[in-house]
Structures are given as C-alpha cells and as structure tokens.
Amino acid sequence: KKPMSASALFVQDHRPQFLIENPKTSLEDATLQIEELWKTLSEEEKLKYEEKATKDLERYNSQMKR
C-alpha cells in the first residue's frame, strides 16, 4: 500500500472520534472538516504526524525494494 501523508494520518487518527461526536455527518464532510482542522495546527503539532509519515514512506520504500 502507498505511503500516507502527514495530513492523511491526522485524518485517520481523528475521524473515528469525530464521527462519534457528529454521527449525522457524512464521511466526506467529516474528512473535509478534519482537513480544515489540520490546517490550523501548529508546526509542533504537525511534526508528530510528519514523523509518522516519514516512517511510513520508509516502510513503503523498503517494501518496494523486495
């Protein structure tokens, strides 16, 4: 599977709780709203997800070399 971006990892982490809190929201709308939240994060908060994305890219690259 392809590597995930930092923002995609953020959405993946936050979507389940968002949908619990907003059960009538469609998956598409939830994703859009969480992506807007991503844009408001500080660089420090984004760094955690950027590090995860880097590790996921390394995983992807090692799988492609096999």
Rank of each mutant, 00 (worst) to 15 (best):
M64A: 12
A53C: 07
L19F: 03
K48N: 04
E43M: 13
T40W: 06
S5W: 00
L37N: 11
N61Q: 10
R59K: 08
L37R: 11
T25F: 15
D56A: 12
E58I: 08
E35C: 06
S7W: 03
F10M: 03
L41H: 03
A53V: 06
K39Q: 14
M64E: 07
A6N: 00
S42E: 10
L37P: 00
E51P: 04
E51Y: 02
L57E: 12
L27T: 10
M4Q: 14
S42Y: 00
E43W: 12
L9D: 15
T40E: 13
V11A: 10
M4C: 01
T25Q: 09
S7R: 15
A53E: 06
P3C: 04
K52I: 01
S42N: 09
T31E: 09
T40I: 08
K39E: 11
M4F: 10
L47I: 10
L27Y: 11
E45S: 07
E43P: 11
K48L: 11
K55S: 12
M64H: 15
K39D: 05
K55V: 13
A8Y: 01
S7N: 12
R59M: 12
Q33G: 03
A8T: 15
L41Q: 12
R66G: 14
S42F: 00
M4A: 12
T25P: 01
E43G: 11
S7C: 05
T40K: 10
T54D: 13
A8D: 08
L41G: 05
L32T: 06
T31A: 08
A8V: 03
L57P: 04
Y49P: 02
T31S: 04
L32F: 14
L9G: 05
T40F: 13
L37A: 12
K2F: 06
D56Y: 05
E51A: 11
L57M: 14
K48D: 00
K39N: 01
S26Y: 00
K2I: 03
L37W: 04
E45N: 03
M64K: 04
L9R: 13
A8W: 04
K39G: 00
K55Y: 08
S42Q: 05
Y60N: 14
A30G: 03
E43H: 11
K48G: 05
P16G: 06
S7H: 09
P3L: 03
T31W: 00
E35N: 03
L32I: 08
A8E: 15
D13C: 01
E45M: 07
E45V: 08
L41F: 01
R59E: 14
L37V: 09
P16W: 03
D56T: 09
E58V: 10
D56K: 04
E43F: 06
L9Y: 08
L47C: 09
L9F: 09
D56W: 06
K39S: 11
K46E: 00
K55E: 14
Q33P: 02
T54W: 04
K65T: 06
K65R: 11
A8K: 14
S26L: 02
H14R: 02
E35W: 01
K46M: 02
A30T: 01
L47M: 14
R66Q: 15
P3F: 15
E58F: 05
F10L: 01
P3D: 13
M64G: 10
E44N: 04
K39L: 07
L57A: 13
W38D: 15
M64L: 09
R15P: 02
Q63W: 07
M4H: 13
R15M: 15
L19S: 14
S42A: 11
T40M: 08
S42V: 02
S62D: 10
L27S: 12
T25C: 08
K55M: 12
Y60A: 08
S26F: 01
S7F: 10
S62I: 06
T40V: 06
K48S: 09
M4P: 12
K39F: 01
K1M: 12
D56V: 04
A53D: 02
M4V: 11
H14N: 08
S5L: 05
K48V: 13
N61Y: 06
Y49A: 02
S7A: 14
T40Y: 03
Q63V: 10
S5H: 04
K2Y: 11
M64S: 12
K2M: 05
M64P: 10
E43R: 13
E35S: 07
E44M: 03
R66S: 12
Q63Y: 11
T54R: 12
P3A: 03
R15A: 13
Q63F: 13
Q63A: 15
N61H: 09
Q33D: 06
M4D: 10
E58Y: 06
R66E: 14
Q33L: 00
T54I: 07
L32D: 05
K46N: 00
A53W: 00
Y60L: 07
R59D: 15
E35D: 00
E35Y: 11
S26N: 08
N61R: 09
Y60P: 10
Q33R: 06
K48Y: 11
L47E: 08
K48I: 05
L57D: 14
E35A: 07
A6S: 07
K48H: 03
P16V: 03
A6H: 00
A8F: 01
S62C: 15
K2S: 07
K39A: 12
Q33M: 05
E51W: 05
L47P: 00
K52E: 12
E58Q: 13
K48W: 07
L57S: 09
L32W: 08
L27P: 14
E44C: 08
K55N: 10
Q63H: 07
Y49H: 01
L37T: 10
F10E: 02
P3S: 02
W38C: 15
S26V: 01
M64T: 09
A30R: 01
S26I: 02
T25R: 05
K2Q: 02
L41C: 07
Y60H: 12
P3I: 05
K48M: 10
E45P: 00
Q33I: 00
E51F: 06
L57R: 12
N22D: 03
L37S: 11
L9V: 07
Y60F: 15
S5P: 15
L47Q: 01
Q63C: 10
E58R: 13
L41M: 09
A8M: 00
S62G: 09
E35I: 04
L27C: 04
W38A: 04
S5C: 04
F10T: 01
K46G: 00
W38R: 05
Q33K: 12
T31D: 10
A8I: 01
K52L: 08
R59Q: 15
S26G: 07
K65E: 15
E58G: 08
A6D: 01
L41A: 15
E44K: 12
L57Y: 08
E51C: 07
L9E: 12
K2P: 07
L32R: 14
E45Y: 01
Y60S: 14
L27D: 00
L32A: 11
L32G: 06
T31Q: 04
L47T: 13
K65C: 07
E51L: 12
R66F: 15
K52V: 06
Y60E: 10
D56G: 09
L47G: 10
R66C: 10
M64N: 09
R15N: 01
L47S: 13
K65G: 02
K39R: 05
L47F: 11
L41K: 05
E51G: 06
S5F: 00
T31M: 02
N61F: 02
E44T: 09
A53S: 10
D56I: 05
L27F: 15
K52C: 11
P3W: 02
E35R: 09
S26A: 06
F10P: 01
R66Y: 12
K55T: 12
A30V: 05
T40Q: 11
Y60I: 05
S7Y: 04
L32M: 14
A8G: 07
L32C: 15
I34T: 03
Q63L: 10
D56H: 08
S5E: 13
L41Y: 02
L57C: 11
L27I: 04
S62N: 14
D29N: 10
S42W: 00
Q33T: 03
D56F: 06
K55H: 08
E44P: 11
Y60M: 04
S62A: 13
N61V: 06
S42T: 11
K52A: 10
T54P: 04
P3N: 14
K39P: 06
A6G: 05
N61P: 07
E35H: 08
L47D: 08
R59L: 13
E43D: 14
T54N: 13
S42D: 13
T31L: 03
R66M: 14
E43N: 14
K1F: 02
A30C: 04
L57F: 08
Q63P: 06
F10Q: 03
M64W: 08
K65D: 15
R15W: 03
F10N: 01
R59S: 13
L37C: 06
T25G: 04
Q33F: 00
R66P: 15
I20V: 15
E44Y: 05
E43C: 10
L9P: 00
K2H: 15
S26T: 12
A53K: 03
E45K: 06
K65S: 15
T25D: 06
S7K: 15
R66D: 15
M64I: 08
S42G: 08
P3R: 06
T54H: 15
M4T: 12
T40G: 13
S7E: 14
E44G: 12
T25H: 03
A53Y: 07
S7I: 15
M64D: 05
Y60C: 13
E44R: 09
L27W: 07
K1Y: 08
S62V: 11
Q63T: 12
D13G: 00
R15S: 03
S26C: 10
K39Y: 10
L57N: 07
K46I: 00
K48T: 07
A30Q: 03
K52S: 08
E43A: 13
T31P: 02
K46W: 00
L41W: 01
N61A: 09
T54E: 15
N61M: 09
L27Q: 02
T31N: 03
E45C: 05
K46A: 03
L47V: 14
R15K: 04
P16A: 12
L9Q: 14
T31K: 00
T54G: 15
R15D: 01
S62H: 14
S62E: 13
Q63N: 15
E51I: 09
M64Y: 14
S26K: 08
M64V: 14
K48A: 11
R66W: 06
K46H: 04
E45H: 09
D29Y: 06
E58H: 11
